[in-house]
Simulated scan of single mutants.
Amino acid sequence: MRVEIDALTVEIAGARLVEDVTLRAGSGQLVGLVGPNGSGKSTLLRCVYRALRPSAGSVRIGGEDLRTMTAREGARRLAALPQEVVAEFDFTVAETVAMGRLPHQGPMVRTTDEDRRTCEAALESVGAGHLADRGFLTLSGGEKQRVLIARALAQQPQVLVLDEPTNHLDIAQQLEVLALVRGSGLTALTALHDLNLAARHCDIVHVIDGGRIAASGPPHDVLTPGLLAEVFGVRAHRVPHPETGALQLLFDRLPSA
């Protein structure tokens, strides 16, 4: 399911946080948004999963404008993992993941055997099946993140939107989660801080700076020393991974003028 963002602009209290952003995520692609803190990545993603209404522009999923869909229709197509999730009630992990099934249930909510199997499979896929009976609030940050990803997968969407999905995860879990997202076959749009994770896992990256797209394309073509110096203020050394040959980046401070 393709995602199309056209001329998206977000202005809040007179400040333009995102300006005239146009990008595409092709069906089954993992598309990364990278950029400095405050560059507009999260604001852009919040428009995609309808937590924020843009001042101008549109978001289309499968060619259909997101604003024309009901909340239920939108939730059947798109699942989101925001950067900050507030949980006030101590549901069990199994109950938390089961919330992902709500868009597929009628007004008289009743969990079916299919719902239970879907939730169990989602938990197992993120290596959290053993947490099913734990209270969500008792989990570590990394465990919570894995459970929330499982909830998104249990929703059985066609599009995943993930804002810093590797936050709070150790290195092995970061690699596992992004490999899982990439292997899901879903169209995924994700903001990432770690440029090496973006280079390894993303089909396309969009570098956002000051609310605008500074560069777009395959990671190897986009993450150049010149661009990284200009946007991130670092000196980058590009090296191939010794086994896969994938782009890896080593960083130094820019020399003083």
Rank of each mutant, 00 (worst) to 15 (best):
56 A>C: 04
57 G>L: 09
58 S>Q: 09
58 S>H: 10
59 V>D: 00
60 R>T: 04
61 I>P: 01
62 G>E: 03
62 G>L: 04
62 G>P: 01
63 G>K: 03
64 E>L: 10
65 D>F: 06
66 L>C: 00
66 L>W: 09
66 L>S: 10
68 T>S: 06
69 M>R: 02
71 A>Y: 09
71 A>W: 10
71 A>R: 15
72 R>L: 08
73 E>I: 02
74 G>I: 05
74 G>F: 13
75 A>V: 01
75 A>L: 03
76 R>W: 04
76 R>G: 03
77 R>H: 06
78 L>Q: 03
79 A>R: 06
81 L>W: 01
81 L>S: 02
81 L>A: 07
84 E>R: 14
85 V>F: 08
86 V>N: 13
86 V>Q: 15
87 A>K: 11
87 A>R: 14
88 E>Q: 15
89 F>V: 14
89 F>L: 14
90 D>N: 12
91 F>V: 03
91 F>T: 03
94 A>Q: 14
95 E>D: 14
95 E>F: 13
96 T>D: 13
96 T>R: 12
96 T>W: 15
97 V>T: 08
98 A>S: 10
99 M>L: 15
99 M>V: 01
100 G>H: 13
101 R>Y: 05
101 R>Q: 02
102 L>V: 13
103 P>F: 11
103 P>Y: 09
104 H>V: 00
105 Q>T: 00
105 Q>L: 15
106 G>P: 00
107 P>Y: 05
108 M>N: 00
108 M>Q: 03
109 V>G: 07
109 V>K: 12
110 R>L: 02
110 R>V: 02
112 T>Q: 11
112 T>M: 12
113 D>Y: 04
113 D>H: 11
113 D>A: 15
114 E>T: 06
115 D>C: 06
115 D>S: 08
116 R>M: 02
117 R>W: 10
119 C>N: 03
120 E>P: 00
121 A>G: 02
121 A>M: 11
122 A>H: 06
122 A>E: 05
123 L>M: 15
123 L>S: 07
123 L>A: 08
123 L>K: 09
124 E>K: 12
125 S>W: 02
128 A>E: 11
129 G>R: 14
130 H>F: 10
131 L>S: 01
132 A>N: 09
133 D>N: 13
134 R>A: 13
134 R>Y: 09
137 L>T: 14
138 T>Q: 15
138 T>G: 12
139 L>T: 01
140 S>C: 09
140 S>V: 08
140 S>L: 07
141 G>T: 00
142 G>T: 12
143 E>Q: 15
143 E>V: 10
144 K>W: 03
144 K>Y: 05
145 Q>Y: 07
146 R>A: 02
150 A>N: 03
151 R>E: 12
